[in-house]
């Protein structure tokens, strides 16, 4: 953790500079957090709601941040948990099984007016949607964001070995799905 981050955290925890520091925090991480959430929930409106909830949680709980990880890791962990909780809520509300969560995500993708990918890109997204939750997150973080396994390990609280295995299976499944689609 560098000195500027330490200063930012100190300001977030102080009464006087809190709001200014919080705005800096929002501006610094909003784009990366948004895309991380968006790839999990697919839909822009859902991603927007979740991103707001993430920052509200940070605003309310910054005093309890123990600083044993970086702000980036802490924010990404909250964002991942919020996104997964959102999907669990959808599952509970609609009484659907795990397979149908992928249907929900596929529908979200189809109806999202802010998806402007072509047919090939849509196919890849539909293939990713078929993956189990954890594999999907690992695939997105590694394949699109090119995140290091060590960083992912801190965020997802999973060993590097397990992450490598998840990514391996995810890549295989995506490839198989795409092969099936071509037939």
């Amino acid at each position: 953790m560098d000195s500027s981050e330490k200063e930012l955290i100190a300001n977030l925890k102080s009464d006087g500079n809190r709001e200014t520091a919080f705005k800096i925090l929002v501006k610094t991480y909003q784009v990366r957090l948004y895309w991380h959430i968006r790839k999990i929930v697919m839909n822009h409106d859902d991603a927007d709601d979740i991103l707001q909830n993430v920052y509200i949680k940070v605003w309310k709980n910054v005093d309890s941040f123990r600083e044993d990880s970086s702000l980036f890791t802490w924010l990404f962990r909250i964002a991942t948990n919020e996104s997964l909780s959102f999907l669990q809520q959808q599952k509970r509300h609609s009484l659907v099984s795990m397979n149908e969560i992928s249907d929900y995500l596929a529908e979200s993708l189809e109806s999202d007016v802010y998806f402007e990918g072509d047919e090939i890109q849509k196919k890849l997204q539909l293939a990713i949607i078929q993956l189990p939750e954890k594999q999907r997150i690992v695939f997105n973080m590694k394949y699109f964001d090119e995140m290091k396994y060590e960083e992912m390990s801190d965020i997802l609280k999973t060993s590097v070995g397990a992450l490598k295995a998840s990514f391996h299976f995810a890549v295989k499944k995506v490839e198989e799905f795409l092969k099936e689609e071509r037939k």
Partner: peptide
Amino acid sequence: MKKTEENIENQFGNRKKDQPFKVP
């Protein structure tokens, strides 16, 4: 695994950085 990953990349050209999702 690297090969499989490359296969996926080949299918989409070098487009994985192209963001199909947009924001308002």
